[in-house]
């Protein structure tokens, strides 16, 4: 009982600071310490949230942004994962592609925005491309690292016991690489939102980033703050999801054993 209570306490502990911050902010706004045209009170942001929610505009923009984020993530993540696997398992593939990939990796992908706009205009492809590119590298690097880090003694053990290549991959190599792949996944989720927001702010006609930019044009500062808060929440949500998956598939890891 006390353990359940303390675990509940632990999980709420992380929310204590944001809650205090919010309360302080509201208080300071009400007291007139923060002018409303610099930073509106949380209650004003809440009001904007409610209005946009009722008009359906907010949901629609979140839907569009999430869709973009996830499709870019799926494309970039899948390519990164496959290349990471290929290069981790085959030295030929690694020698062929790794140098090139490492060179591309060192270009900040957001530096490609002008080029991407020239190529794709401000259509969906531009955002998809940027998100996919941003997500690709953390997934690729960490998948490769994970596979290279698998204990060779375990691989030898698998061979001795007559595992086929498929069994060896599914039972030894992939589970061994999984902790590292998850690190890449969480990293990639962060980059996914970052890229999308930047891309939407610069060139879009819908989505959360667009909503924030448009609000700026009309000086709707509460909407701007609202979009920023929604980014934070979405990011947290994605991270929580990744953590959940991590916990589920890494039960064997001493770091995840609660008993």
């Amino acid at each position: 009982m006390s353990r359940a209570l303390s675990s509940f306490g632990r999980s709420t502990l992380g929310w204590l600071l944001p809650a205090l911050l919010l309360a302080g902010w509201e208080g300071a706004s009400r007291a007139g310490l923060i002018p409303a045209n610099v930073l509106p009170a949380p209650s004003a942001v809440g009001e904007a949230f409610w209005k946009l929610l009722l008009s359906g505009e907010l949901i629609e923009n979140i839907r569009i942004s999430t869709l973009r984020a996830l499709s870019g993530f799926a494309v970039g993540g899948l390519i990164g994962f496959s290349l990471g696997l290929a290069n981790g398992l085959s030295s030929l593939s690694r020698e062929l592609t790794d140098t090139t990939l490492q060179m591309i990796r060192n270009i900040p992908h957001l530096a490609l925005i002008p080029l991407v706009i020239l190529w794709f205009g401000i259509d969906e492809e531009a955002k998809l491309f940027l998100v996919a590119l941003g997500v690709f590298f953390p997934i690729y690097v960490n998948t490769l690292l994970g596979i290279q880090g698998v204990d060779p003694q375990l691989v030898e053990m698998g061979r001795i016991y007559g595992m086929s290549r498929r069994q060896l991959f599914l039972r030894v190599i992939l589970p061994g690489a999984l902790p590292s792949i998850f690190v890449g996944l969480r990293y990639a989720l962060g980059i996914m939102w970052l890229t999308l927001i930047v891309a939407e702010t610069i060139s879009a006609s819908s989505g959360l980033g667009y909503m924030a930019m448009q609000a700026r044009e009309f000086l709707l500062i509460d909407v701007v703050v609202l979009s920023i808060l929604i980014y934070a929440l979405l990011g947290k949500l994605a991270d929580a999801l990744a953590r959940f998956l991590e916990r589920l598939s890494l039960q064997w890891h001493p770091a995840y054993q609660t008993v």
Partner: peptide, 21 residues
């Protein structure tokens, strides 16, 4: 071997079953 070389992500019984691959 000197090291047990068990799969850390497989339960004990599943590790023994590896011997029946």
């Amino acid at each position: 071997f000197q090291e047990p070389r068990l799969l850390p992500w497989a339960r004990v019984i599943a590790n023994v079953e590896v011997g029946l691959t």
